[in-house]
Nucleic acid binder design. Structure first.
Length: 265
DNA sequence: AGTACCACCTGACGGC
DNA sequence: TGCCGTCAGGTGGTAC
């Protein structure tokens, strides 16, 4: 769910359902998701306003509250999503709710409660405060090259570092490296120009393709790793068994045949 | 700077 | 059936 493509899908969902409707009130069922801000602050900023402009940076979704200069930012953690409903259906795990005067409601649902809904002054200062890097779909080639050449670490943790590049997580890092035929443990600053170009282009095309396919792995191309991203399953390209390699408490899944580690030997 | 681990949370799954 | 460990797409903090 909540890496860049998923968040982009949520953004479009919110745009197609929840804009330009007067907010009657907000309901906070779990204050922990407000990250230190108060339910009263959210209520005060949202009541009588409507959701208007949206903006995504990496895995964060910003929505403006008009008429005012305030925004609210959504982060989806591991299990967050949005649901626009009428009545009281689909309420499981609804943690923060925007109720509109037309009787509809926008639910922020999150079973694991690792997400966040935070009133903020503006996206720019939030992005700066979180030290987020450039958005993965917006970053230009020269900045991408510089990011790689500055890093003495492995590709896998670098792509997951939101201060280096924002929006890519565990799942899509693996897909991008697989499509690029690059091992997750290769040192970023050791890539050749041709490999950097391949990586950049695959990053963009994987993210765009995922968005086009509604971030739904069942609709991904046959050549994609994500639908078979488990040990005991095999590489869609060569049939070799997929392997798992731990990085800082997370798992990289990759094909040992298609993604050789050039650092070694 | 890079890496390793824990914490925050809940749910699904496999083995016994 | 229950219990237990492990794993899961997130970030943040600490320690080396």
């Amino acid at each position: 769910m909540p890496e860049l493509p998923d968040v982009e899908i949520y953004k479009r969902y919110l745009e197609s359902t929840s804009l330009h409707q007067e907010i009657q009130r907000t309901v906070v069922r779990d204050e922990r998701l407000l990250k230190g801000t108060s339910p009263e602050t959210l209520q005060k900023r949202a009541k009588g306003k409507s959701l208007n402009a949206t903006r995504r940076h990496g895995k964060y979704l910003f929505v403006s509250l008009d008429p005012s200069s305030a925004w609210v930012v959504f982060h989806f953690g591991m299990t967050g999503d949005l649901k626009y409903t009428q009545g009281h259906s689909d309420e499981d795990y609804a943690r923060v709710i925007f109720e509109f005067t037309n009787g509809h409601r926008l639910l922020f649902r999150d079973s694991r409660r690792l997400g966040a809904v935070i009133p903020v002054d503006d996206p720019e200062s939030f992005i700066a405060q979180k030290k987020l890097g450039p958005d993965a779909l917006a970053i230009e080639k020269a900045d991408f090259d510089q990011m790689l050449s500055k890093s003495r670490g492995a590709l896998k943790p670098l792509f997951m570092d939101q201060s280096a590049i924002a929006g890519i997580g565990n799942l899509y890092t693996d897909e991008i490296l697989f499509q690029s035929h690059l091992h997750p443990g290769i040192r970023a600053d050791k890539l050749e120009a041709e490999e950097r170009t391949r990586l950049y282009e695959n990053m963009k095309s994987v993210l765009r393709t995922a968005i086009e396919k509604n971030a739904d792995p069942k609709q991904f191309p046959e050549s994609y790793l994500i639908p078979r991203r488990r040990t005991k399953l095999s590489c869609p390209r060569c049939g070799t068994k997929i392997e798992r390699l731990p990085f800082e408490g997370r798992s990289a899944y990759f094909c040992p045949q298609c993604q050789k580690n050039q650092n070694e030997e």
